[in-house]
Design a protein around this nucleic acid. Structure first.
Lengths: 349, 349
DNA sequence: GTGAAAGCGCTAACAA
DNA sequence: TTGTTAGCGCTTTCAC
């Protein structure tokens, strides 16, 4: 009853050998009904729970996958995690989550711990895209899939959101509303999302013959604070932008906060578009227009790819998926009058 | 290089016995510098990572704790988790997280999995407070601490927020502002927070000689949807309340959404106080007054208690901590004129 | 149907 | 300082 019973104890109590107990535990059949019941009863009475460590030592798999995210406080990740977990549970897998706080060092530790524990696979949004520290995982032959941020030096299945498209469309929308002075609050340029969202921005400007203006580019770090600072800096410009595109949820929050504090009239003096939907989006007036990512689907797909790798160890070539984000047009981005080129000259595509 | 090397391989390559390798791996000293270096090199070259399963089979501890939360999408939990992780890392522990989706069945599965993996302890916010399913953990002698929701039938260290005090003070604040028709959107009464926040509400009314009015009590389920419905129901009353107290963050969001949709003038026609701070609190106009919980501290304390249990297996009696919440007065709760009892009669304490 | 026995990779006691 | 060896609890042949 107390302490831990092992397979031996169960065997003894049921008057069988441990082999038979093992068969029952693993539903392998080939055990007389009567015997099975006796064993089940013994297990019940002893409160026996099998020791995963011992089990793992023989049959390789653990039916457990490790998930690593950079910042558990960013609501994006719990949503992705929910998608992963759901699919995992369906397939009889178990997901354990750990957060790195954007620290490559911590990430490496977690990774090592996961390997030690013998996870069957790992899903990761890395804090260090060059991927050196991931070598250990691949070398152990453990399948891995990258989510939201790709990995440079290794071929790993990847599930991304089409960041370029998302930001392109957002910026395009602002341009079509007549905006020409469109600022961007960038994410870190050493991350895929940061880079790509900036690319979409540039591409849109280019396609519509708007020139890139250094003053309108603010380098943020995906944190709320930097969004706040960004808006302030933009406001301090002599020639202020008429629209701002923010590259992620947290910066959007900071940015909107600043706009409020500055008494900069949102939707009138300053239009706004954010990447990622946020709770506050529909609470402020005007409501925020945003690019929304299919987070749950992202997680589901990630697990599915991982699961395939786990099942069929054959080295299929690397796969990369790009899920399309969705534009949610609300109210924060308004028509700009007067257009500076009413003849549409600068707007030809 | 490829596949997994084991301690044997390392020993062979370094021309020593596995015992010596083990000594090096575990920093036990007593190995000649030269030998150690040879071994380290071999480990390096082979990309050896020790097998936790095998290790666990001998020396009991895994330096891993399991954390179980009911809803990873509720921002409260990631914050608590951050506190746990920080302290855990300091002490050389590793935290793995799993979410139950408020399902006792899933919770039981996770628990079992954690036990199988030999976690050194578990921190849990249970989906089923009667605690039957926790028996297995306690029987295995695995330390456990409950966070935010206590456990009925077993003596487990518990870290709570003083919910009664928090809601009492919030409601008291509204009363002192002159409100008498104060509604509450309750959480589930089979959870500690749900029950206690309701108790604080009742206590405040009682202390100030305000009678409990059934019409002003709405039973929610801590979900956004129910907050929304609650506000609607309250609004539909002939004799509407002049103030609402919402029992948690998600219901606050739903509630505020409804108030907006109903064009019920927040801070004027209807005052508001919520339990738990939310992102949107400072974005809406007027800003939301809330009861704020020390989430990070909650997590830190939980780990600390658990750690003590892990280290000193002696059965110290159950400990229960109640951390005080903090009232954040912003703008959503306004003075009510005219008070119905200007002589202060009904306001004597 | 059931049991005996050989490891899985590691730690730790005991020898040398 | 280093090596030998006995398990830890389990799965899995191979006999019976």
């Amino acid at each position: 009853m107390e302490g831990k019973a092992n397979i031996q104890d169960v065997a003894k109590r049921a008057n069988v050998s441990i082999a038979t107990v093992s068969r029952v535990i693993n539903n392998q059949g080939g055990v007389r009904k009567q015997t099975e019941e006796r064993i089940l009863k013994a297990i019940q009475e002893l409160g026996y729970i099998r020791n995963a460590a011992a089990r793992t030592m023989k049959s390789k798999d653990t039916k457990t996958i490790g998930v690593i995210v950079p910042d558990i406080n960013n609501p994006f990740f719990p949503s992705v995690m929910a998608g992963i977990e759901q699919k995992a549970r369906e397939k009889g897998y178990f997901a354990i989550l750990s957060s790195t706080n954007e620290s490559p060092v911590v990430e490496q530790e977690i990774l090592k711990n996961f390997i030690e524990r013998g996870v069957d696979g790992v899903i990761i949004t890395t804090a260090n895209e060059n991927g050196d520290h991931l070598k250990q995982v691949l070398e152990q032959g453990i399948p891995m899939v990258a989510v939201d941020r790709s990995i440079q030096y290794y071929d790993v299945d990847t599930v991304l959101v089409d960041n370029v498209k998302g930001s392109y469309q957002a910026v395009q929308h602002m341009i079509l509303q007549g905006h020409e002075k469109i600022a961007i609050i960038c994410g870190p340029q050493n991350t895929t999302p940061g880079r790509e969202r900036f690319i979409g921005y540039k591409k849109a400007l280019e396609d519509y013959n708007l020139k890139l203006d250094e003053r309108y580019i603010f380098q943020g770090d995906f944190g709320e604070r930097s969004g706040y600072q960004g808006a302030h800096q933009l406001y301090s410009l002599e020639d202020r932008p008429t629209a701002i595109f923010s590259s992620n949820n947290l910066m959007t929050i900071g940015c909107v906060k600043a706009i409020g504090d500055l008494d900069w009239k949102l939707g009138e003096e300053i239009s706004f578009f954010g990447f990622d939907d946020v709770d506050i989006a529909t609470f402020i007036n005007p409501k925020l227009s945003v690019v929304s990512r299919p987070m749950h689907a992202l997680g589901e797909l990630a697990f599915q790819l991982l699961h395939e790798r786990i099942q069929f160890k054959d080295p299929v070539p690397k796969r990369e998926y790009k899920l399309s984000p969705e534009l949610i047009i609300r109210e924060s981005c308004r028509l700009r009058y007067p257009k500076s080129s009413p003849d549409g000259q600068s707007l030809k595509k």
